[in-house]
């Protein structure tokens, strides 16, 4: 059991990121959105914490350190997407391209403001949850020490 955990769990991060990307990209025309994607990634990170312990998990994945900044950056992106139309005299959250205008597509990805909004939400949710996991892991380790 524990062997499987130790072998499998750290390697789950890649597939989880893939799933998350798929959820975002497909999301706008199918079930799923940035929130779910963020939770999926956070779950994979949580698994690493559980199997490797907080210290090893964070050493092996230094990008986790930037989780709080990423979260805030995501939220700032969301705000920017939401309120930039105001600068052009449009109400907040105006959708670009507008209704009826063609959408640029790169494969399955549709380039719309709503998708950018979703990416921001993904960053925020993933970052915020990883931050929470970090804080709790720290607490638990302190208690044990």
């Amino acid at each position: 059991m524990s062997v499987i955990l130790e072998v499998v769990c750290p390697r789950l991060l890649g597939p989880a990121a893939m799933v998350a990307a798929a959820i975002i990209v497909k999301g706008y025309s199918d079930v799923g959105d940035g929130f779910s994607a963020g939770v999926v990634v956070a779950l994979a990170v949580a698994l690493r914490y559980v199997t490797l312990g907080a210290e090893r998990a964070e050493r092996s994945l230094p990008v986790l350190r930037h989780a709080p900044v990423l979260a805030v950056a995501g939220l700032l992106l969301v705000l920017a997407i939401g309120f930039f139309p105001v600068a052009f005299g449009e109400p907040p959250l105006t959708h670009f391209p507008r209704a009826g205008e063609p959408v640029v597509e790169i494969g399955a990805l549709e380039l719309t403001t709503a998708v950018a909004l979703d990416v921001g939400i993904f960053l925020l949710v993933a970052g915020a949850l990883v931050e929470t996991i970090h804080q709790i892991a720290r607490l638990v380790e302190e208690r044990r020490a």
């Binding site: 805030v72 939220l75 700032l76 705000l79 309120f83 105001v86 005299g89 109400p91 907040p92």
Partner: peptide, 19 residues
């Protein structure tokens, strides 16, 4: 409309950075 949006966005964005 601009004042309305500004009164929301300014503290919103700034609060996040300040946090």
């Amino acid at each position: 409309m601009t004042a309305l949006s500004l009164s929301l966005v300014v503290p919103w964005a700034a609060g996040l950075v300040l946090a």
